[in-house]
Design a binder for these strands. Structure first.
Lengths: 228, 228
DNA sequence: GTAAATATTTAGGCATGTCTAAATTAATTT
DNA sequence: AAATTAATTTAGACATGCCTAAATATTTAC
């Protein structure tokens, strides 16, 4: 509960590392934390001393094995709490991030394992984000970005990659939910607008911008008896 | 989430005020917080500035109306979380205090009102402590200390006034739970040892020390038709 | 009613986490 | 390759919340 800032830095460094493979730069962290670069330098020195990151001044920063595990356990707490807030308290998925941000700092292993059991040991949170296990290991799942889907592709909506209120409300307006099965009818050659078909044959239209923030599990059609 | 210390002081001042009617002394706070008296002085000045307490140097401290309401809302959060931990996560009632101590600092009114609804708007927590409502008002209940019970008295066990592990385990060992109905068979004239009878007529023996930390609702026997 | 004992407050420090401004290092331009 | 520009780090401050030691106020004892 008292290492809130350190934890926030570690989580952020992990998240920035997901996208880039290279070292994370001080300025990126400063921008994302909404904090002065000088503050980041101070903190990086401390995190480096405690073995959470490897830090070469002016060259950026990388999580150590220890730091990565620590970050994963924070993400575990965060996603378990989000699951609780949405599935049991009935909160909307665009209202839970900030609250989970606070709840994740409550440090009790007993609490987290009891919560995990109460929730039924979920693998994914309400946004479809994978929940690390007690060792910090993520469940694996074959996923693709909806933007890359080709006509004829059948898929299940698996995850949204944007927590912002405006995105989530626009997503809700599409009347699709995680777990829904869709098939790609058409991809507009000019702007990439996707036309998808629900199982009830009704249609959904998703812009490339929107699609790029949605991940799906492709459904491999079982090969028909008569093919091959 | 950032006013953790201030909140802890306010709650403590409230708890110390429950017993005493007079002003609370710096030294009492220092002792209860496990902190130096000088630190308490510092904090009292700050709390006084923000209108939470009335503070006269050397004369002690009293909660203001604002400070009392703030403290009640913290206690509300604490007791709601304890209810969740015991009733839904299956934790033992002697394990939840520290965790609730952290959870209560998560500040979101939406969260607390959703949690309240999820729990079914309870009036009492697992220790029988009353849960303030959203305005900081406690539910009222007629209660007496078990130590003061007289032979023939029928009562319902309502509340334990001691959160320590050693007390709660000894209480559990009696095989009685909150809500159980008991009647007083005998009070030992020398040491005050109580002999009580359960509804199944089996007996429980409770020392005066133990009894003094147990609160009960007396059951008024409905007057018999033939009396009077 | 004054002196000794006790409690409280003030003074000055330390750690954390932030800031601004200055110095330093790296990258870009020419 | 040197000079300019951009990014990063260091230096020095401030706020919070704690500490110890010294000063001050209050209470108790004689």
């Amino acid at each position: 509960m008292q290492n809130i800032s350190r934890d926030d830095y570690l989580k952020l460094i992990y998240k920035l590392s997901e996208n880039k493979k290279e070292s994370i730069l001080t300025g990126d962290i400063a921008q994302a934390m909404g904090v002065n670069a000088a503050s980041v330098s101070d903190m990086l020195k401390k995190l480096s001393l405690s073995g959470m990151i490897s830090y070469v001044p002016y060259q950026g920063v990388k999580l150590s094995r220890k730091g990565r595990k620590h970050a994963m356990l924070l993400i575990r707490r965060h996603r378990l709490w989000e699951s609780f807030l949405v599935n049991h308290l009935g909160m909307h998925w665009n209202q839970v991030h900030e609250i989970a941000e606070q709840l994740e700092h409550v440090s009790s292993d007993t609490l987290i394992s009891k919560l995990d059991a109460f929730l039924g040991f979920p693998d994914y949170d309400p946004h479809g984000d994978p929940i690390p296990d007690g060792n910090g290991v993520l469940p694996q799942r074959q996923c693709m970005n909806l933007r890359d889907a080709k006509p004829g592709q059948a898929l299940v909506v698996a995850r949204v990659m944007d927590d912002s209120e405006v995105f989530l409300e626009s997503f809700d307006a599409l009347s699709i939910k995680l777990g829904d099965a869709l098939s790609v009818s058409h991809v507009n050659a000019f702007d990439g607008l996707l036309t998808l078909q629900r199982e009830d044959l009704s249609r959904v239209y998703i812009s490339r911008d929107m699609a790029s923030r949605i991940e799906c599990s492709p459904i491999t059609q079982p090969p028909s008896k008569y093919v091959g």
